[in-house]
Design a binder for these strands. Structure first.
Length: 339
DNA sequence: AACTCGGGGAT
DNA sequence: ATCCCAGAGTT
């Protein structure tokens, strides 16, 4: 029987926990998929990706037998595409050698760091190891009223004591649920908090000034102009190379002085500390430039593209189908071209 | 320790 | 517009 803070936390968790699709099981495969998707990504965004992924790759064997492009296509739009490659590599290692049975074994898998190893081991194996994410760091900073700018080490020591019980996986997930729904970054709901009586920040009325905010990085402004080449019903794309953003994924080439263009759209997207103002134009050509890969709309659906380029593609397909609507008015925008 | 790597939702 | 999210890997 857990007592004190962890006991109050678990009682709250049993009553208030979020019902999430990956919480229906403690099998390592779905748990690893969810934990990988959740790295630096919000729960609401992950849920539909997780459901689709488990339908497309229901078992670790089915994932291991897939090719990288198919895997990346399932991941497209989630960002941090290294995670998808790591997950594929994990699947192949696991099919070869079996699931790791210890924290140290999990740490050796690609894309599995201390957080993910702790989460999977505690949830699937019942190992008493902490899982320190941004939520847990924030909860710790407030409970301990710790103003430090580097909380990882102290939060780990603190959480090690909390998970030393019969339900380490639930303690870890309870801390994250608490951080996500009650001990929020802004305006924490201390009135609804099950551990407020253990919280030093609450006692001192400092919950809104902890944790200490990190210095903001300066944002670099960039402008990217893209061209969507169109020829005989096919679209020209290129694969991003090593060292480029979105290496290995597909998208559109930079505009290079093309005339006779159709304006498509202008929008901004943010890549870490870069703010890019992107614009794209459509160019209808009569020759398929050989340095590009020419794809039908059907093939484009299955191609892994980062979100901004998928957005450009959809805009281009809309423009093409509008101008190409025939006398019978039967031309339709493919469902994949909807926003 | 500092940096890269995506994208989106909440405020 | 800013913050920050169930972080990991590299330099």
């Amino acid at each position: 029987m857990a007592t004190g803070l962890s006991g109050a936390l678990l009682r709250w968790y049993d009553a208030e926990r979020r019902e999430l699709p990956w919480r229906r099981t403690t099998e390592p495969y779905p748990v690893l998929v969810s934990e990988t998707m959740l790295q630096q990504t919000t729960v609401a965004v992950v849920v539909p990706y997780f459901e689709r992924w488990m339908t497309r790759f229901p078992t670790v064997e089915s994932l291991a037998l897939s090719d990288e492009e198919t895997v990346l296509a399932q991941w497209q739009g989630l960002g941090y595409y290294r995670r998808a490659r790591s997950l594929l590599a994990c699947a192949r290692l696991v099919v070869e050698s079996g699931w790791p049975l210890t924290f140290a074994g999990w740490l050796e898998l690609p894309g599995v760091g201390k957080y993910t190893a702790g989460a999977v081991c505690s949830i699937c194996l019942g190992e008493r190891v902490p899982a320190i994410d941004g939520n847990v760091e924030r909860v710790f900073a407030r409970v301990a009223a710790d103003p430090s700018s580097s909380l990882k080490s102290a939060a780990t020591t603190w959480a090690r004591g909390l998970v030393d019980c019969n339900r380490p996986g639930d303690v870890n997930q309870a801390l994250m649920d608490l951080g996500a729904t009650v001990c929020r970054p802004k305006n924490p709901d201390c009135g609804a908090c099950p551990v407020s009586r253990f919280c030093s920040a609450f006692a001192g009325g400092m919950q809104n000034s902890l944790p200490t905010p990190k210095p903001t990085k300066t944002v670099v402004q960039l402008t990217h102009e893209y061209v969507v080449p169109f020829c005989k019903g096919q679209v020209g794309v290129r694969q991003f190379g090593p060292g480029e953003w979105w290496a290995g994924l597909y998208g559109f080439p930079a505009r290079n002085g093309e005339k006779q263009v159709t304006d498509l759209l202008t929008f901004t997207h943010t890549v870490t500390h870069h703010k890019v103002t992107a614009s794209a134009v459509l160019v209808r050509t009569t020759k398929m430039k050989p340095h590009l890969q020419w794809k039908s709309t059907c093939e484009l659906e299955r191609l892994p593209m980062p979100a901004p380029h998928r957005k450009i593609l959809n805009s281009a397909l809309n423009a093409i189908y509008e101008s190409g609507s025939n006398a019978t008015g039967t031309a339709k925008v493919p469902s994949s071209a909807k926003k």
